[in-house]
Write a protein that binds this DNA or RNA. Structure first.
Lengths: 156, 156
DNA sequence: TTTTTGGTTTTTTTGTTGCAGAACTAAATG
DNA sequence: CATTTAGTTCTGCAACAAAAAAACCAAAAA
């Protein structure tokens, strides 16, 4: 076994969590490995070996992690290999601001439902109005809250 | 066709959105129908017919919507049927406060990874520290923000 | 220019999940 | 106590997705 058991179970946990968040288990494993390995960057080939996965699986999952801005590919002159590392410029706040879009979708649905109703003052309509108000308040407020992060912790 | 086309497409949209949020398309359809029907409550049987779905599918999906506190079952004396309506006491803020758990999981992973690292001051460790700080700040702050909602809009 | 290396794209295999249909259960009615 | 009603649970299938295998391609090396 090439890496410690604690680390293996950590990698698997990360796999499960990322899977539950909508990506794949394998992409979670890759992220997990990059988090616990003491190497600063890791080659494509090493990922295949350590995670016991096929090249194709690593290839596709590495790509999704890159588009999510979680990791970054590194290439070196005189070296054909590609290495990957945790994206040093990852901005979690930005990431979550983008995710707020889903809440906005919800809000659009509530408004539309309200339009489609004949009686705009029955229980269901009031439910919808309440929901619209909440989501309007929440999306705006949450976004403003997250924006405060930028500059909060200057990288020393 | 028993309901208007605008409403049908609304129902389908809701299905797609709820599906993308981790539940099933059918549960989204049920919620969507309850949002646009002018009836205040709808019977199990009506859901089957309007959504052209089997009893089993309605049964299981209605249950998940109930556990999510989105809808509420209503029974009436002298009537064997069960009716469903949008949960009048649904608290969206509460709902999202519970969802924050996922962010906490993330944070737990970051801390654990940091523990497992040998060199606690290399790039990856700093990435992890930054992430821990962000998630600590974000989960607490978001929770407090959401708590402000309660009492913000007294149901007049 | 041929071979090797490093990775990508395409195709198969395998596993999962949502839904329908049938069998089942509980309660109310005759 | 048999029958009907209303809904639940189990089984199986079709659709889909994740990962593996295989075919492929580009760049560097021989």
């Amino acid at each position: 076994m090439s890496i410690y058991n604690e680390r293996i179970s950590f990698i698997e946990e990360t796999g499960i969590l990322l899977e539950s968040m909508g990506t794949t288990r394998m992409s979670g494993r890759i992220l997990g490995y990059l988090m616990v390995t003491d190497k600063e960057m890791v080659s494509f080939d090493e990922l295949c070996q350590v995670l016991q996965a096929s090249k194709s699986s690593i290839s596709t999952n590495v790509k999704t992690l890159i588009t999510l801005h979680f990791i970054k590919p590194i290439t070196l002159p005189g070296d054909r290999k590609t290495y990957y590392m945790l994206a040093p410029d990852l901005n979690w706040a930005e990431y979550h601001i983008k995710r707020i879009e889903q809440l906005k979708h919800m809000n659009r649905l509530f408004r539309k439902a309200l339009e489609l109703r004949v009686n705009k003052n029955d229980k269901s309509s009031r439910w919808l109005k309440m929901s619209v108000e909440f989501y309007e308040w929440a999306t705006e407020g949450y976004k403003n809250f997250l924006k405060q992060w930028t500059g909060k912790k200057p990288k020393e």
